[in-house]
């Protein structure tokens, strides 16, 4: 086993454990913290795939900004166990049924797929220069459209702030 495989196994185990932690932990804050750890391990996977740019952007956007907002909201809610509203029974059943249905769909989908025979080919697509070239040649239209979307969101924020 090469060092890459060992790293992958360690990262994979941690990411599965932390992802389970998100679902299973009682306190919402520790749930969020587990989710942040999951994002970190996924960023680690990106680095193993030689996609450093994606890894760093993943951390900046998800761990650095979105999860901060999650934490922000959760901190303001008084989520003590005593203060939790009593859950209705039909809600539990509905949750179980919809979750089970999703599980069935997922299992069926995974069962039907055939894994293509992947070779260990070194790729440099994830490096920032190559990624930039692809974004500005092949995928220039969607890239520009999404950038205009972001710009308009930012301008909107400023306009709302100016009021």
């Amino acid at each position: 086993m090469g060092i890459q495989q060992i790293l992958f196994l360690v990262l994979a185990v941690i990411s599965v454990i932390t992802a389970l932690g998100v679902v299973l932990s009682k306190s919402p804050v520790s749930s969020v913290l587990c989710l942040i750890l999951t994002f970190f391990t996924i960023a680690g996977h990106y680095i193993l795939l030689n996609a450093q740019f994606l890894a760093v952007v993943h951390i900046i956007v998800y761990a650095g900004a979105i999860m901060v907002l999650f934490l922000f909201v959760i901190m303001f809610m008084n989520l003590n166990t005593e203060g939790e509203p009593h859950k209705r029974n039909w809600l539990k059943y509905a949750g179980a049924i919809s979750g089970g249905a999703l599980l069935v769909v997922l299992v069926a989908a995974i069962h039907d797929t055939t894994m293509p025979n992947l070779q260990a080919v070194p790729t440099d697509v994830g490096l920032i220069e190559n990624l930039g070239k692809i974004l500005f040649s092949t995928y220039v239209a969607p890239f520009e459209i999404s950038s205009i979307l972001f710009l308009s969101a930012m301008v909107g924020a400023v306009v709302v702030g100016k009021k």
Binding site: I36, V56, I60, I128
Partner: peptide
Amino acid sequence: EVNIGVLYIFGVVSLGVYGIMLGGW
């Protein structure tokens, strides 16, 4: 010597807020 040095700094700096948030909460 990574080719995304500036982005790395951004990533780390954006994590700096967790110290303040977790401690404060």
